[in-house]
Design a binder for these strands. Structure first.
Lengths: 165, 165
DNA sequence: TATTGTTATACTCTATAACTATA
DNA sequence: TATAGTTATAGAGTATAACAATA
């Protein structure tokens, strides 16, 4: 032990390997937590509101944009291809939760908007959803949550730069 | 501002609301990072190895258990139902990567194991996968990664207690 | 020509339930 | 009876590519 002077190469190498394992272990633990949280939210969304995460996410996007979003914008924000947005929008529209309003300037496009019913439902769901999230993260102090939030900002930027897909 | 003495109730309430928003914002940022990382890994796994995350995960479980795992154990560890494990195992077996060996004591069960080919392939994939993960988390210092790892341990335990499904 | 959105198709993962064989 | 595993079925989400209408 304490061979810092005699075996620098080996120490460097093992440190590198340790850091590799560190990143991998971190990712696996992260993924495990994420899966559990997502599963919990997914199941509750299905049980209490008969909906799914993609549907919830689409409505969340619309709630932030009362003037509406085009199918293309939804596709980009949800990071899925156009065909999928058509399908999910079809479902929500048939349930009277969203509407394809005519676009003010582009006759090819729609301005997808929440209906009053959709908005009311979404707000109920969002409130409940937020309570679930608060409970799930209740194991952390506010300071820990804040620290995590900051650290994730760094990661997010790194990810955006690293793979500018 | 600084109404700590005059309006304690309001301050408490706004602090609670802030903490709610804090948890939600944290979760949304977290989810965004996770999605990006997972997408990157999923795409690379498909492009470079023609495989998927569930297949990779199943092989990862087997690599840790050279004596093999039963279908049931795989089902539990991967947190999916039995029918899915049958399907994925069928694929991998047809490609010669895993084998359903007879179980030593229970004639109903199998001992699913990696074949030598499967083991070799998995080790190649795992090495590359680990490199991706290291790159994706390169925005953090080793200390930050260690701190995150610790904090996730707390969360994981909270999640395990909270919903003992 | 390029873009918006839809349609058609196919693939993966997932869950549920009925079923066989063994414990 | 209970458990291990398979099969059949169905449904959600996803991507791709061909297509119509409009820019």
């Amino acid at each position: 032990m304490a061979a810092d002077e005699t075996l620098p190469d080996t120490d460097l190498e093992s440190r590198v390997i340790d850091e590799h394992h560190q990143a991998l272990k971190l990712w696996l633990r992260w993924l495990s937590c994420t899966t559990r949280i997502e599963d919990a939210i997914r199941k509750r969304l299905a049980a209490e509101f008969g909906t799914t995460l993609p549907r919830f996410d689409l409505m969340a996007q619309l709630e932030r944009q009362p003037e509406g979003l085009t199918m293309r914008e939804l596709s980009q924000r949800l990071m899925v291809t156009g065909g999928n947005v058509t399908g999910i929008t079809d479902q929500l529209e048939s349930e009277g939760l969203v509407v394809r309003a005519p676009h003010p300037t582009d006759r090819r496009a729609f301005s997808v908007q929440l209906t009053p019913t959709g908005r009311k439902l979404f707000r109920r769901m969002a409130t409940t959803h937020e309570r679930w999230v608060v409970e799930l993260f209740a194991g952390w102090t506010p300071e820990q949550k804040a620290a995590m939030h900051e650290q994730l900002a760094v990661l997010k930027q790194h990810l955006a730069q690293g793979s500018p897909t």
